[in-house]
Simulated scan of single mutants.
Amino acid sequence: MTLKIVAYGVRPNEVEFFHKLNKYNYELKLVEELLTHDNIETAEGQDVVLLRGNCVADRQNLEKIKSYGIKYVFTRTVGFNHIDLEACKEMNLMVARVPAYSPNSVAELSLTLAMMLLRNTAYTTNKTKNYNFKVDAQMFSKEIRNCKVGIIGTGKIGLTEAKLFKGLGAEILGNDPYPNENAKEILKYVELDELLKESDIVSLHIPYFKGENDELINKNFISKMKDGAILINTARGELQNNEDIYDAIKSGKLAGFGTDVFPNEANTFFKEFSSGDEMEDQSVRRLVDLYPKVLVTPHVGSNTDEALKNMIEISYDNINEVLTTGETKNAIEAK
């Protein structure tokens, strides 16, 4: 019998990859929309549910999935906070993830946002698109080789970004509770307060742990940053307090903010609004309206050819491992 997989949040440009990489000949049902309470019925008749970030895998949906006779709820993401692991454990649903994918995908986006803000390219091109070619004071900038870049979280992604900035001549500072020996050739480890005080650019690459580092980027965090610094978050939206960042940009404490994430971003990302008034989270609107000092991308850090290939291949391998051995090394469960 051919295994049936329903995958959610499959963008049109990803369809070809799902079919081309299907070396196990699974029967695929590719759904463009994210999994919600309104479309959970599309999982009926399938053997495996394959999610992406911001899919709703709460108890309500998991009970439905269980009732359909599905045993496997897998995600093609590193993060898994969109899945109720406690409910999965109770219902004996196996969960697996993709533990890593191309670190360059997110690291390159972080660097791009930072460099756009440092060199004021969004500001400048926004002027020239209106045929204004005058050079003003806002277009003046430092060169990156005269800057210090602080990387918070020096795992694969953080270290990759550090290497990219190092290649451009920047001095790199790092902070991580678990220092990476390989990273010490690229950066200097310092305490968080020192990193914030010294860095012209601060970039986050740390996981989100509910109840532990919620809104890490808040008024107190920002107050310790260098005046006129640039802040980048391509990690998790729950790490930031939107209002405190807004206040810091408005006051001039921060020169710029680049983000690929927001708290509760499913309410905003992957939707189109005719006006900002329609947005459920008005703190997001206020930040977006600060363009070009605030640059927002809708969680596209992993939206690259290599990262997509990694996520699909590893997801397919996870499923095959379970079918052939009864388990997978990438399984996760509630502690």
Rank of each mutant, 00 (worst) to 15 (best):
F80H: 11
L62W: 03
T36S: 15
T36G: 13
F74E: 03
G69L: 06
Y68K: 04
A57Q: 08
V49N: 07
V56E: 12
L50A: 13
I83G: 00
N61F: 02
I70Q: 06
Y68H: 06
E63I: 04
T36K: 15
T75R: 04
F80E: 01
L50C: 08
C55F: 04
R59Y: 10
D58M: 05
N81R: 03
H82M: 06
H82N: 13
E44H: 11
T75N: 05
V49W: 09
C55W: 07
I65W: 04
D58N: 15
T75E: 05
D47T: 08
A43Q: 08
G53Y: 06
H82G: 08
D47M: 07
V73P: 00
D38T: 13
T77S: 14
E41D: 15
G53L: 10
K71V: 01
D38P: 02
R76T: 05
N54L: 09
L51Q: 11
G45K: 08
K64R: 13
A43E: 11
V49F: 07
I83A: 01
I40F: 08
H82F: 05
L51M: 13
T77Q: 05
F80N: 03
I65V: 14
R76A: 13
L51H: 11
V49D: 09
T42A: 11
N61Q: 11
K71A: 07
T42F: 03
D58W: 05
I40M: 11
Y68A: 04
V48Y: 12
K64S: 11
R52E: 08
G45H: 09
A57I: 02
C55N: 15
D38Y: 10
K64P: 02
S67N: 14
N54P: 01
T42W: 00
G69P: 02
L50N: 09
